[in-house]
């Protein structure tokens, strides 16, 4: 579609610019250039092995491998809540459990009530520091949801639905 000269444009307007050969060539060079830069940037991110440097959380093995260096630093630690290790004391506002990646186990002490989805066997990410005694003290506990969305087995009663929000009390 050729741009129509607008009725209100001055009659002495220069020729329509977008059809000037020089302008067209320049624009198309811009196009090729930006596509090249974009492609390059994407491939650097995709194939540049940034994964090693860009880690949102450590797993217990990585923290163990860091040894003494890990002590005292602020760390995000991710793993699974080991079954049978959760101790929740509402009065003391204290939550203790073990985070594991299947190889290394780290005892965690957190403060505050955990999110409602917190339970044994679920993935968590805890932010905090590793103390000299080997206990990880956390002031921020996050629960990792998997990409599985399941319907409950059988009909869910209103009662059961409610309990989903009160997992904390049941621990």
């Amino acid at each position: 579609m050729t741009p129509e000269p607008s009725p209100s444009a001055p009659t002495a307007a220069p020729p329509v610019p977008s059809t000037r050969p020089a302008a067209t060539l320049q624009r198309r060079l811009f196009l090729v250039g930006s596509l090249l830069v974009a492609g390059l940037a994407l491939s650097v991110v995709a194939f540049g092995d940034l994964g090693e440097d860009l880690v949102y959380f450590w797993d217990p093995s990585q923290m163990a491998a860091a040894g003494e260096d890990a002590v005292g630093a602020t760390i995000r630690l991710g793993g699974v809540v080991k079954a049978g290790t959760v101790q929740w004391q509402p009065d003391a506002n204290s939550l203790k459990f073990i985070v594991t990646d299947g190889k290394v186990e780290v005892p965690v002490e957190a403060t505050g009530a955990p999110p409602q989805m917190f339970r044994e066997g679920i993935g968590v990410v805890v932010e905090g520091t590793l103390t000299k005694s080997g206990v990880f003290t956390s002031d921020r506990l996050m629960v990792k949801h998997s990409n599985e969305y399941k319907a409950p087995e059988g009909e869910m009663s209103a009662e059961e639905r409610k309990t989903l929000y009160t997992t904390v009390e049941e621990l």
């Binding site: 994964g51 880690v55 949102y56 959380f57 991710g78 949801h145 599985e148 969305y149």
Partner: peptide
Amino acid sequence: WWRTLHQPFSSPQT
């Protein structure tokens, strides 16, 4: 590509 808290891709299988 990276470790995230966000869940990975969902699919009709998940």
